[in-house]
Design a protein around this nucleic acid. Sequence first.
DNA 1: TTGGGTTACCACGACC
DNA 2: GGTCGTGGTAACCCAA
Lengths: 97, 97, 97, 97
Amino acid sequence: MVLQDAAHSAEQVSEGPAGLAVGPLRSFIERIERLEEEKKALTADIRDIYNEAKSQGFDSKVMRQVVRLRRMDRHDMMEQETLLDLYLSALGIQRGL
Amino acid sequence: MVLQDAAHSAEQVSEGPAGLAVGPLRSFIERIERLEEEKKALTADIRDIYNEAKSQGFDSKVMRQVVRLRRMDRHDMMEQETLLDLYLSALGIQRGL
Amino acid sequence: MVLQDAAHSAEQVSEGPAGLAVGPLRSFIERIERLEEEKKALTADIRDIYNEAKSQGFDSKVMRQVVRLRRMDRHDMMEQETLLDLYLSALGIQRGL
Amino acid sequence: MVLQDAAHSAEQVSEGPAGLAVGPLRSFIERIERLEEEKKALTADIRDIYNEAKSQGFDSKVMRQVVRLRRMDRHDMMEQETLLDLYLSALGIQRGL
DNA sequence: TTGGGTTACCACGACC
DNA sequence: GGTCGTGGTAACCCAA
C-alpha cells in the first residue's frame, strides 16, 4: 500500500510539517470528495436514463446528439448567432434542412 | 435562434412523424437535461471550494493532485510509481528533491 | 534541478537498472517528443491563421464555431442523420433557420 | 446531410450576403482544416509509436508519464512535488515506494 | 458482456 | 479580458 492515512479520526495536531494548517486542508479535501461523489452519482443516473430509453427502443446515441445540439444552441443563441449564420451562408453552407 | 421548440406545453400529439413515441422521448430528454443541470451546479460548488481554499493560501493545483491520488487505487499507484522510477532512471533521469 | 540527464550522448550501457532495454526506450521517447514538437508547430500555424484572418476583419471566434460545426456535421453525416432529424422533429424542434 | 456546401468549386460570387469577402474566408477555413488534419495524423503517428513500444514490452502509460515529466519545467516540477508531499503528509498520508 | 484503450469534451490555469 | 495549452473525465469501440 502506498497511501496510508496515519491520522484517522483523532486530529490532535493543528499544524503539519511546515506550519501547514491541517484542519482546513482536510476539510476542503473532504468537502470536494463528497461533491465529486454526488457528481458521479448523477452521471450514473443519466446513464441509467439512456439505458432505460434504449430498452424502450430509442437510440441513445442519437439522443445524446439531441441533448448536445440543444445545449450548443443555447450557447449559440447567447452569442453571435447572426454572425455565424452570415459566415456559413457566405461559405455557401446551408445550416439545417 | 436556430432551434425552436414548436410544441411548448401542450402535448396534443402522441406520435411523431414516423410513429415515434413523442411523450417518452421528451420525458427522457428533459430528465437528462435536468440532471445535467445538477451536475453543472456541483461542478460550480467544487470550483468554489477550490477558490475558497486558494484564498486561504492553499495551492489548488496541488490539492487537485491530492484528490486524484486519494482516488487512485493504492496498489495501482505503487506499481505505477515503481515503474515510472525505473523508466526514469533507465533514461538517466533523476527524479526527486 | 529535479530531472537530470546523466547519460547525455554516450550510450555505453545497453541495459538499465532492472534489465530494461535503455536504447529502445530512449529512441521511442525521442521519436514521440519529436512528433509532439511538430504538433505544437501546427497549433501555432493554426493560431497564426486565425490572427491573420482577424487582422482582415474576420471574427476568429465565429470562425472557430464554423470549423467546429463543419467537423461535427461530418461526423453526423456518417451516422444516423435521418434518425436525428426524426427525433428533433418529434420533439417539435426545428433545426436550421 | 445537414450542412451542405452550395458553392462547390465554382466561385462566381466575390461577396456574400452582407458584403462579406467570401474568398478569403473560405481560404482561411480550408487552410485551418488542412492543418488540423495534419495534427490528427501526427496524433495517430504518436499512438503508433506507443503501440510499437508496448509490443516490445514497455508500459505505454508510464511512458506517457515520462514524456510529461520531461516536458515539465524542472523547477516547477520540484516545487509541485515538494508541495504535494507536504500536503499529503499534512493529511497523514504517506506516499512512497 | 465486460474491460481496456482511444477519443472528444470540458473546465481550469497561465499567459499575453 | 480573452485566448491558448493542459489535465481530467466520461463515452465509445474493440477484443477477449
